[in-house]
Design a protein around this nucleic acid. Sequence first.
DNA 1: TTAGGGTTAG
Length: 617
Amino acid sequence: MFPLFLTKTPPVLVSPASMSVTYVRRCLHSRTPRRFLHTANPSPTSAPNLFSDPIFKSKVEELISKQHWYNLKELIKPINPSSFLELLLESGFDSSSILGFFRWSKVYHPLENLFKLLVLLVNDKKYPKVRSLLHDFVKNGKTHSVSSVFHTLLTCSDNFCANSIIVDMLVLAYVNNGKLDLALEGFRRAGDYGFKLSVFSCKPMLKGVVKEGKFEVGENVYKEMIRRRIWVDLYTFNVVINGLCKAAKLNKARDVMDDMKVRGIMPNVVTYNTLIDGYCKRGGDGKMYKADALLREMVEQGVSPNERTYNILIDGFCKDDNVGAAVKVFKEMQLQGMRMDVVTFNSLIYGLFGDGKVDEALGLRAEMIHLGLEPNIRTYNVMINGFSKMKMFGEAKELFNDIVKQGLDLNVLTFNTVIDAHSKAGKMEEAVALRDQMLRKLICPNISTYNCLLGGYYRDGNVGAAKELLEEMEEKSVKADLVTYNIRIDAMCKREESRKAVRLLDEMSEKRLFPSHVTYNTLMAGYCQEGNTKAAVTIRKRMEKEGKQPNVVTYNVLIKGFCQKDKLEEANALLNEMLERGLAPNRITYDIIREEMIDKGFVPDIDGHLYKDIVNC
DNA sequence: TTAGGGTTAG
């Protein structure tokens, strides 16, 4: 569309190409230009070069520079705007004037002309204008394939530098307009066309890729940047390291940190914090030792930890069931005069509740208020969850009611927490009523909400209600996740339908859901409960084939299974296998050994210290 | 410009 030029005029009376020159010249030399009937469909390339007339050229220059668009419109009325733009591009006009006309005309110009204008702007180093033009092109323009865009650019210009800058800014425009796939395609194909991109576009693209959880893609982009010798700056390295940490590729993340040093870029506090957080969350066995070692390393390297470093460690220790260590870090923060924030307190309150230290958790909340820190919705969610787990439902309800009074907004996690508490307490009617309440508040239930309810129905033995809920999920297009399947598998196993539960693994595979340790351990527990230890061992083999090594729960399940079949020697062998693998027995292992072995007169052949611990426990 | 906290499953 070309709203400023299209008029509801009668049909063509003359050919615009021949008429327009005469007309325009007449207009220029007469005071009052007369109205002109122009073509409804002028040929885009038919306009002769009007700018050979210096008077006309200077008039156009004047009108554009003064932004007298109405007069310009009258002057060039018979000429197709695209043709006029082409004339401007070919007639040595300055880039700003051409851009002025381009923007004012509000018409879809052929891609070639856009790129010719962009090259002119790049040559004049008017980069913000290039960025803005490309942004509009991506946002409002027709969708062109990346290859057609690149091909057109090559036909318009052989200036390697200018072309590369344009493509760089185009990729950035794709990212900024949420078209990450096009940005990635642009990045990949740029090499084929000989365009060199820069960190200017690669960094936001990587950021977007990591944010969307496409860690593998991010890793490949980084490798390709190195291969194409694209300069990588500190921030981009940090984005790459963050992506690798989130994908649990911690060794690779470390390699990248070493690589950046080789390239003369020293890791900063963000680099170390990212890695420390990676180890805290996904570092496997001894993860907190590794995190602590990194903390020492950063200090040795002259990088000072900040508040966030300590927050990461506090959270890590709390999640590792080591609140004592978390409290030490907290006290260290106090000693160093560091400013603690709501995150510090939320993490520690979470840890204290998990350790059953309700009074200390409450004391901490009082301390945070004393320091002028307002508890936020996460503080409430942590505390409601903590109280619920301690079966202190009165306190949990009081806090739930307090949230709105404090002017905070309830969110889906608040509801999921209370729905789960009710479902675990066997109060399914209340749980469903809470779900209705959240709907009235326009808070959309998510898959976790459904999982909480589903678990509740199965615990109640209400298979019918659970089935209806699964159908409702289907109707509402709420996709089942790994937890949904684990809940269903657990319910089937508890009904002694383990063989049927195993078939759900195929359904999961169709939905590209990968079974976890929980999935396999649940199935093993099901078979053991049915007395079928042979089938349980088959599941273990299947799990190992999938690259998952047995964990403490796996051993606990199997050891208990063998004990209950009176296969105590085999149970003892499993126990020693677990110890040889460096897996520490937990309280449940202790209970099994005591109740299923020692109390039944069997003396397990294990390390003497461990035996003593178990007996004294 | 890059880094931290809350729900559901064994």
